[in-house]
Amino acid sequence: MAQITEYKCADFDGPADIVKVYLAQQGCVRAERAVIAIAGSADNPSNIVFTNGPWGQKPLHFTAIPADRTETMNDFAAVCYSIATLGEMDCTTLIRRQSAPFFPATLLAAKDCNAKPARILTSSPAHRFVTIGPGTGLGVGMGLVTDNGQFLVVTSEGGHCAFAPDNEEELKIKQYLESENGIAVTNETFASGTGLVTAFNSICKIRDIDCAILNGSEVVAKLGNANSDIREAADRTLNLFSRTLGTCAASAVLMSNARTVFIGGGVLKKLGAHFNKATFTHAFMSNDLGKNNALLDIPVMIVDPPQPGLAGADFYLKLTA
């Protein structure tokens, strides 16, 4: 990919305005084809509603984009497509025991990707993966290679599944947010960049600590605060983030029977060593399956390339040209 440029949505009235500016900067007026990855439902390009951000809950018409053909997809569908372009050198290992992670490219290279579609698609669990990504929100998706060599992506809104408290304080946080803010508390409420802000401010509120933040990056800074109560609130926030992410990843695996987890999104990289791997791992592996607990040997990989969604949209565009 080339000519990647970042823009702030808040600086524009809608997506068409951004595309027009981008094309003008590339010396173009109109594109032959546009593939746009969207944080939300993307079934109808003429009626797109973003879940988060400055355009949230405002119907947008992507058909106004200056392109002869415009297609929209869920942002984590794009991340799932990007997994087909990756190898192990493109990822950082978070959890790995005996089983090797599944990278679709190895299988797709060995099979006929243009095989005639079957009436019934089957796929080995070993050839399935899930993607999960804490960014502004919490994206969840799934991909697989079928037994006859087809690559399939399944989108979801798994980040919006209901949050399940694990202890008394988490229950108090949930009740506070529901009663005082009137919001539905989901996994995304805590396992996301905005979720770090929500979690920290809620913890401070129920602990009667006079402190609040506006940006998730402030949580790490609060770990060095002179006030021990604030330091503890920041540490508790990071634990809540890690536990919720681990639980959500486990749910995605158990629902899909996948055998590899890929974590995208930008939050983990920003947290660095402050991401609580032990808390994530415990939450990820905890269930009542006993000796049938496949999660004990599921590799969890962090996607290193900074723009996997763009890489996935590019892969989809070439695959469907």
Rank of each mutant, 00 (worst) to 15 (best):
G158R: 10
T136F: 00
V219T: 10
H127Q: 14
P125R: 07
A294N: 11
K222G: 00
V145S: 00
P54T: 04
S179Y: 05
P117Y: 12
P59A: 04
Y316H: 13
I173T: 11
C204Q: 03
V153M: 10
K222L: 15
P165I: 10
E169Q: 12
T70I: 15
L223G: 02
E170V: 11
G143N: 04
P45H: 06
G266T: 05
N44L: 02
N181C: 01
S99A: 14
C91L: 06
T198F: 03
M73D: 00
D304R: 15
P117E: 03
R236E: 15
T5D: 12
A184S: 13
H160R: 15
V29Q: 15
C113R: 10
T198R: 08
A10L: 09
V219S: 04
R243V: 05
A313F: 10
L310V: 14
T155K: 10
H127I: 06
S156V: 06
N44C: 00
A2V: 09
I230Y: 02
E218T: 04
A10W: 03
Y22V: 07
Y22I: 09
R97E: 02
A191I: 10
T70W: 04
I203V: 15
I65T: 13
I18S: 05
R96K: 15
A39P: 07
R128Q: 11
A212C: 09
L23R: 09
A39C: 02
A2M: 12
I263N: 01
P134A: 08
E178G: 01
H282V: 07
S179N: 04
A105N: 08
L86V: 07
L177R: 09
L296H: 13
P308H: 11
F241N: 11
K205A: 14
Y22A: 03
V220A: 03
G246D: 04
F50I: 01
A109S: 14
E168M: 12
N239Y: 04
C28T: 06
A42G: 00
A283E: 08
M142Y: 06
K270R: 08
I173P: 09
K174D: 00
A212S: 14
A283W: 04
G133V: 15
R243T: 07
S286M: 07
N74W: 12
N215V: 02
N148Q: 06
G135W: 07
F315D: 13
N181R: 13
P15E: 05
E218I: 03
E71N: 09
